[in-house]
Design a protein around this nucleic acid. Structure first.
Lengths: 137, 137
DNA sequence: GGAAACAATTACAGATGTAGAACTAACTAC
DNA sequence: GTAGTTAGTTCTACATCTGTAATTGTTTCC
């Protein structure tokens, strides 16, 4: 029954990501900020965003986004500027320091668990191909 | 380079679990409680636990565990009883109502994303075998 | 039996995140 | 130009979570 296999796969993937290899605490300790702020920083580092876009990405509300960006700006990691075409909007951009901090975060978060690295090369390659199909983005 | 493949696999698994198919909001809305309380309920439903054990499972602190269990007990989902061999300990057990609520939560959380179900059977079977290797627990 | 250790609770302080209402400034469309 | 809309901010209130210290009852070990 392939439905059961799918369920098994899903539960194990969840366990791996959320329990066995959760690096959130580590990242927060390293950067000295809450995880939602790390997430905000990483998104901004990926490319400039308006406040509204960032609010959507973080799935939070506008007032809190203001607080988060205030915090990151105070630490010199991001900057606000007025949108050239629509002066109501602000564009949030990462600074050099922010880019560096984001890289540190990515390094910790994207470090794969050793169990994946230890797979036989052929099996890893197959896994790579399959998982690529699962990721829409 | 298999290190890059491992990194790719990991990042895509994370995206799938945390972004594409995150059911946390849904579960919280359905059960009317915060996610940490859902997590506590699910752990207790899996089998009786002492407060200390539950504290470890939730990776929180003792006082907060007391509050969480107070809440679940007030809603009639779990019960506290004294440990027969060590009267310092309390054993937290799920009630019938709690078991039912937990099943609802599991149903939502464990429902695999459709992309997994849609894989060709042979590929799903291979994925199932590989992922089983990755899950230590 | 007494000291030390442990489980759980209580009390408390503080950080973090969620949410609504009201406001300003800027844009859009008629 | 004026009405309605949108982006962002401020203010406020609250829920949630984290962390420390002290307290109670119980167990363990000498």
């Amino acid at each position: 029954m392939s439905e059961q296999a799918a369920s098994r796969v899903w539960q194990r993937m969840r366990a791996l990501v959320l329990e066995q290899h959760d690096r959130r605490r580590e990242v927060c300790a390293e950067l000295g900020m809450s995880f939602i702020k790390v997430k905000a920083l990483r998104r901004i580092a990926r490319g400039p965003l308006t406040m509204r876009e960032l609010t959507e990405q973080l799935s939070t509300d506008k007032p809190y986004t203001t607080l988060v960006v205030d915090y990151l700006e105070r630490r010199g990691l991001v900057e606000r500027s007025v949108h050239p075409d629509d002066r109501r909007c602000k564009i949030v951009t990462v600074t050099a320091a922010g880019q560096a901090a984001s890289k540190v975060a990515e390094g910790i978060i994207n470090e794969p668990p050793s169990v994946i690295l230890e797979l036989p090369p052929a099996e890893l390659a197959a896994l790579d191909r399959t998982v690529a199909k699962l990721a829409v983005d």
